[in-house]
Design a protein around this nucleic acid. Structure first.
Lengths: 173, 173
DNA sequence: AAAGGATATTTCGCCAGTGAAGTAATTAGT
DNA sequence: ACTAATTACTTCACTGGCGAAATATCCTTT
């Protein structure tokens, strides 16, 4: 695998060439899109690499952390906020239950519902996994100033909202 | 599915709670990581939604565009720059060949190699697919100023390089 | 209180991506 | 010039995720 700078140069070159053929091509935006996909993908890959030794993948981990931060949650809640399909949630819950990190219990008030709760083993797992991730998380943004990070935060949130309203254009009463 | 602002608020809240339990948690960086994963994922989803009617997925499309921009390429070249496994490249090439968008030919100088070249149907497909994407690409960054975009470009490239050297720490002679 | 509609979760079948092993062609070492 | 190592691509088996349909419970209306 080539190193990143060459990879980026190649991308710029390719988009540049296509831009000559399609004068309307919004070159800057296309580059940003590809950069976001690239960075997102690498970040995901790095995270999964760190999690694999513990037998978890990124969505398992994210789900575990969401349950951890609230103590318990229903699959639907988790789907809402983790933008996952319900189908997938079932499988993730199965895996976490099987690993003894969470428990499944049917809700008393609404027996359609399942309540997923973290176990002590689950909490222990979080304590084991989380801190070793800090250096890498830090490393990813090492060359950015605090100000850079604040700006990045702001811009990413804007893009997230833009994308959201692209997909669901103003479905408000 | 909840709207984006609620989703972001929920994320901030969750990370905040975890940050209280783990004082060393680099909150700002974790938030940025999650934002990048979120935006990357949504961007990918949007793109795939636009491509599906044409029978292509994102990696098919990316590969087609790379071949388009150079006229032809070998699977290995494409893997290098598109950070895809060779395995996957085989399948993608199969799909594109089957759709008549590219051709496969063995190289004359090195008979281990395969040369993938775009066909006229492939070029036609690019002309058909690409322009309708422009509005969405534009929309994703609509609320950003030109300066914002330049900054974002710079920061994303830095992160990309940081991640790269996290993974392959200075393997230079 | 019975029927129709809504909601929560699961099951099923499909597509995309990956690692490990396999095959074929080239290059390097002696 | 012959073996060994390398490189290019493919095949196979497996995991992760998704959409559509199935199931079970709840809510609403009559």
């Amino acid at each position: 695998m080539k190193r990143m700078p060459e990879c980026l140069a190649h991308m710029d070159e390719g988009i540049g060439r296509v831009g000559e053929i399609f004068p309307d091509l919004p070159v800057q935006e296309v580059v940003l899109t590809r950069l976001l996909l690239l960075v997102g993908g690498n970040l995901l890959g790095e995270l999964e690499r760190d999690l694999k030794p513990h037998g978890l993948n990124e969505s398992d981990f994210r789900t575990l952390m969401m349950i951890y931060s609230r103590g318990s949650a229903t699959p639907t809640e988790l789907c809402e906020y983790a933008q996952q399909g319900a189908t997938n949630m079932t499988r993730i819950a199965n895996a976490l239950v099987k690993a003894g990190l969470i428990t499944r219990a049917t809700s008393a008030e609404d027996r359609r519902r399942i309540v997923l709760s973290i176990t002590t083993a689950g909490k222990r797992m979080v304590r084991k996994i989380l801190p070793p991730l800090f250096p890498n998380v830090h490393g990813a943004f090492a060359s950015l100033t605090t100000n850079d990070k604040r700006t990045l935060d702001r811009l990413l949130r804007q893009i997230a909202v833009n994308l959201d309203s692209l997909t669901q254009p103003d479905s408000r009463p």
